[in-house]
Simulated assay, not measured.
Amino acid sequence: MRYLVTADSDVGIVKKTNQDSICAFHANSPVGEIVMAIVCDGMGGLAKGELASATVVRAFSNWFQTKLKYELVKLDMQVIAGKWELMLKELNIKIMSYGKQYQTSLGTTFTGILIIGDAYTAVHVGDTRLYYIGAEMQQLTEDHTVVAQKIRRGEITQDQAETDHQRNVLTQCIGASPHIIPQILFGTVSDGTYLLCSDGFRHKISALEIQRAFQKNMLSTPSQMHAQAKKMILTVKQRQERDNISALLIRADHF
Rank of each mutant, 00 (worst) to 15 (best):
M137W: 12
A135L: 14
Y132S: 11
Q139E: 12
R152H: 04
T141D: 05
T141S: 12
E142P: 13
Y131T: 14
I133K: 13
R152P: 01
T145W: 02
H144Q: 14
G134M: 05
D143C: 12
I156S: 01
Q158P: 06
Q138Y: 14
Q158C: 07
Q139D: 11
A135S: 15
T141I: 05
T145K: 04
T157F: 03
I156C: 03
L140T: 12
T145M: 04
G134V: 08
I156F: 00
L140C: 06
K150T: 01
Y131Q: 07
M137G: 15
I156W: 03
Y132I: 07
Q149P: 07
E136I: 14
V146L: 09
I133V: 12
A135K: 12
M137R: 15
T141A: 06
Q160M: 05
R153Y: 01
V147P: 00
Q138N: 12
I133L: 13
T145Q: 03
L140I: 14
Q138V: 14
G154M: 00
M137Q: 15
T157E: 07
E136Y: 14
T145Y: 04
H144P: 12
Y132D: 10
I133R: 12
H144V: 09
K150G: 02
Q139R: 14
Q138K: 13
D143M: 10
Q138L: 11
H144R: 12
T141P: 10
T141C: 11
Y131D: 03
Y132E: 12
Q158S: 04
I156E: 02
T141F: 09
Q139Y: 15
I151P: 01
H144M: 10
Y131H: 11
Q138P: 13
A135I: 15
M137F: 11
R153G: 00
I156G: 01
D159P: 10
V147D: 00
Q158G: 05
Q158T: 11
I151W: 02
T141Y: 09
E155I: 04
I151D: 01
A135E: 15
I151F: 02
Y132T: 09
T157L: 03
Q149S: 07
I133F: 08
T145A: 08
V146S: 08
Q139K: 14
Q160Y: 04
Q139A: 12
E155M: 07
G134R: 11
V147C: 02
T145R: 06
R152E: 02
Q158N: 07
G134E: 09
Q160C: 03
V146A: 11
R153W: 00
E136F: 14
V146T: 10
K150N: 02
R152D: 04
I151C: 01
T141H: 09
R153L: 00
K150Q: 04
G134Q: 06
D159W: 02
R152Q: 09
E155C: 04
Q138D: 12
